[in-house]
Nucleic acid binder design. Structure first.
Lengths: 343, 343
DNA sequence: CTACGCTTTTGCAGCGCTGCAAAGCAAAGC
DNA sequence: GCTTTGCTTTGCAGCGCTGCAAAAGCGTAG
């Protein structure tokens, strides 16, 4: 395998200094048209390609940002990621993706271990079970933007929707439909379940706002927010003496799992049990029935996150950590409203 | 911001040469226990972290591999990616993900533009609309493994399932169910639609094998393999004078879209129309009805691809390009078999 | 006591690029 | 004609690490 073509090779052929070649290649100003052309020709003749590694080292930056998510195959994250990649690309950044499998240890390692720090100029992090302390003790030199449920300690930005309000809205929708026994699937009453707990809080607030008391036995915990979790939780609920007539699910996947159980038990959605989901993933727009859901503005979350991160990267003094709220809305579909055009 | 701690700083504090520190940090053999300890202490005291960029440059490798897929939010790809990331991580590789949006131009650029070459040691590429020529003209120095439908020209490996056989199997299943008018959704009768065309070939072969002739007007082309494509194609099929009583969909997403249309038109699946999908994504296991599908062994595809890529990376002389077939199977679910436990 | 062989440590060069500051040069001003 | 000004180009050092080969240390054999 022949040696790589370097700047110096090009410089020699073009009869200029290697620094000038660098200037041309990087499109710096103040290069004569004549010189530029000559260099260009040499570049093409030799098939020169800049060595990104060397450039990174010399510049002390990598032109990459990392996005860390728990699971890639969770539609919410993959949809979000897609938007992040697009937004980053516009600014000339590559995106390195890391999947933590929701393992708090892995998450902590990623934040704490600065050795990979130089591989990317900043990180967009969507933690699942990360404790606040790990965030606070991290290497502050790495620009960070957090997605999801977490409040900023001032050293990073946080982008998310108002989960409590959104959950309250979803629950109120069920109450206003006249449902009497409303269940919630997805609580996680332990340290790393902050996200879930906010949704439970909204669920409770909705009941309080309508002068109701939630039935505690209808609040079901699940280890994750996946289809099987929803399916299993629903099984449990249907086995109760007084099963629910409505369910607020903490993700659309949970809702899809729950609906699957309901239908296979011969129940009708929404006639027998109304279902609300969360995330507005594409599945929910094509499922049978389609799913009423909380729709966070993913596009805005992604672009805001990238924008703030790039600001942090380019800023010599770290900007104050901001709490950024993206908008959300309740989208009503068949799983609560029924089929509009009855087949 | 203070200067980074370097190997030399550690060396000075520990009273050894920087090369020795490097040896310790990298766990090289032949370091006295005494020396190792002294260095370790200095490392900890200064909070030294190796500079990955510098290491990469010195070693001429990056320890990263890239995976290029058309869409991240397509479950098939995100499920596959997840397996690839896991497999790569086991071997100490990071995964850089790039999304082409299925844009042939973007795909070509990725392959042709060697400038990013050094950012990663190899590429696993799942092309959509890439012509064979771009593959052949590429920079051969970059180790490459292709996923999906493509045949190797000997300069890279190709991992995929036997699409023709799988499609034939899916279609034969529908024929054997006694269906008379079997449609196919997802053909792409143009240069970049190789993948789709193999499925169409299998579809035809199945008919031939059973002494049937496929109805040409029931073979529907779609621009992509998404839910909306399936929904729309199904609309079209149902508007025909003689609509189909079975559909072979070229992806599970297409199947989900098609089923959505069927149900909202008041038709029953599978009683009125049986549906087979392709990919075995999780959605299809929880949808209503669940989807009969071709299940490629994604885990094996991922681990094989990573394994072959790492072999290419570490091999001084490029190994011959292999055609690697992963197994697949037909999984029969409700969309053709009906509900086993009628609700 | 010297020689030898083995393990451990070192010094140096250099990966390929860019930052910096100085040098070169042409046009403009006195 | 000589200096000033402003644009181009250059040379050099160095980013922080590792490969290489030589040097040093050390125990054992002759």
């Amino acid at each position: 395998m022949r040696r790589e073509v370097t700047l110096r090779d090009v410089a020699e052929l073009a009869g200029v200094s290697s620094r000038t070649v660098s200037n041309v290649v990087n499109g710096y100003a103040n290069v004569t048209e004549r010189t530029r052309e000559r260099v260009q020709r040499a570049v093409e003749e030799l098939g020169y390609r800049p060595n990104v590694l060397a450039r990174n080292l010399a510049q002390g930056r990598s032109g990459q940002i990392a996005v860390v998510v728990p699971y890639l195959d969770t539609p919410y994250f993959s949809e979000l990621l897609q938007s992040v990649i697009r937004a980053a690309r516009v600014s000339g950044y590559n995106v390195l993706i890391d999947q933590t499998d929701g393992d708090p240890e892995h998450e902590r390692a990623f934040i704490a271990d600065g050795s990979r720090r130089l591989l990317f100029d900043g990180v967009i992090f969507s933690p699942l079970g990360l404790d606040q302390q790990a965030l606070t003790n991290r290497d502050r030199r790495l620009p960070l933007v957090i997605l999801g449920e977490r409040s900023s300690d001032g050293s990073f930005d946080h982008v998310g929707i108002d989960d409590v309000a959104a959950s309250r809205q979803a629950t109120e929708h069920l109450i206003d439909l006249g449902r009497q026994r409303i269940a919630a699937i997805g609580d996680q009453p332990y340290a790393t379940g902050e996200a879930a707990q906010r949704r439970t809080r909204g669920f409770r607030e909705a009941h309080a706002a309508r002068g109701r008391t939630p039935r505690e036995d209808l609040i079901i915990s699940t280890p994750r927010f996946n289809r099987p979790d929803g399916a299993q939780a629903m099984e449990h609920l249907l086995d109760l003496a007084e099963p629910p007539d409505a369910v607020f699910c903490y993700s659309d996947l949970v809702a899809l799992g729950a609906i699957r159980t309901l239908l296979s038990r011969g129940l009708r959605v929404p006639e027998d049990v109304a279902v609300v989901g969360y995330d507005d993933i594409e599945d929910g727009r094509f499922s049978n029935p389609t799913i009423t859901t909380i729709s966070p503005d993913k596009e805005m979350i992604a672009t805001t996150a990238v924008e703030r991160l790039l600001l942090r990267i380019s800023s010599p003094t770290p900007p104050a950590g901001l709490e950024l709220r993206a908008p959300h809305k309740l989208i009503i579909r068949e799983s609560t409203a029924g089929r509009s055009t009855p087949g």
